[in-house]
Design a protein around this nucleic acid. Sequence first.
DNA 1: GTTGAAATTAGTACGAA
DNA 2: TTCGTACTAATTTCAAC
Lengths: 207, 207
Amino acid sequence: MAETSDGPSSEEWRPGQIPPDLDAVSLRMLDVLREDGRISIAALAQQVGISRANAYSRFEALRANGVIVRFTAQVDHVRSGLGVCALVFVTVRQQMWRQFRNQLALMPEVEYCAITTGQHDAMIQIRVPDVATVHHLVTHRLASIPAVKATETVFILDEVLRRPYVLPSDQRPLPQPSGAAPGTDPMPLGMTRFVRADAGRAGLSEL
Amino acid sequence: MAETSDGPSSEEWRPGQIPPDLDAVSLRMLDVLREDGRISIAALAQQVGISRANAYSRFEALRANGVIVRFTAQVDHVRSGLGVCALVFVTVRQQMWRQFRNQLALMPEVEYCAITTGQHDAMIQIRVPDVATVHHLVTHRLASIPAVKATETVFILDEVLRRPYVLPSDQRPLPQPSGAAPGTDPMPLGMTRFVRADAGRAGLSEL
DNA sequence: GTTGAAATTAGTACGAA
DNA sequence: TTCGTACTAATTTCAAC
């Protein structure tokens, strides 16, 4: 359905070859498509300055390579009746991760779930019609999952920014700070290679 | 944390009339469109069991009412070259919210930003090519914003679940627990009416 | 809200540069 | 590879029911 990765098996993807053939033209196509996913291929070809046939083949390549996962409609949650949003930070009982993931997949009000470093193990974002449902979901539905050891909930008061999808072409060429420059470190890790710890803490006093 | 909506206010939206005309058919249309945003109106009409003309008028109404914000392409971040994702929890200096928002808008690697209750004031999600860029962004770019008082960063190790967009129709009709049932509390608050506190905490021992 | 036309556009299949 | 063109199929629009 909409799951990013419900298991260890990636489809046919080896994390070595990170950008398959993402040249500037294809990146511009992605840039256009993320702002208007219903644009016709003809108009897309015109906007990026290539022929229609070329646009068709690139478009299909982007889908075949898995760079474009899907096209989707972004709906206004408040206008569609789900005006309450919250984050639930979950501590997961070790060796019960699979059960945790399976249970999450059964909860349609969960919009997003990420495994994180730091104090908690996972963060889930839920979208429900009212505050009472948040309470019910956290104290009954989540609590009934054995894999869930503890939770901590914060409400989202306002969503300041929601970009469709960030692209590498957005990022300005970073000025080399001094030592090891950002961008010098390709590091083809598949997002599952960090050390679990309170890493990543960066108080500004550090400066 | 006081005013969350110091931005250009709401467009033409009064939070009273939450569902404008979202009947079951339009909800099914949204359900289809969020899984295939490029489907033709003809095929969409067929899937939800209405005529083409009806589908066209409903489709345009959904866009005009702002229920559908945009159509977008979901890209695989790892395949597109942004394999590192992190959450940065930010403590914002009071009365500098506007500056904070303006600065965020200038940072293309910020995919999402939400104002939250709890220990911190805001959570931002960033998407960058490598770990070094996270460090640089947090300790230099974010730190140089006067509105930012402190930050705390966690890395995202894996993204378990990412639903395109949650819809009310996904939510099962909740069984009435006992007392005040969820769903009995419409509470048309515009997402800016919660009390700042450590509210929402729900230890499972509470059960 | 539905059905059935015409007008437009999308998708495909070729060569040619 | 990319482009340009022609051909076929599909979609959108607009009408009447």
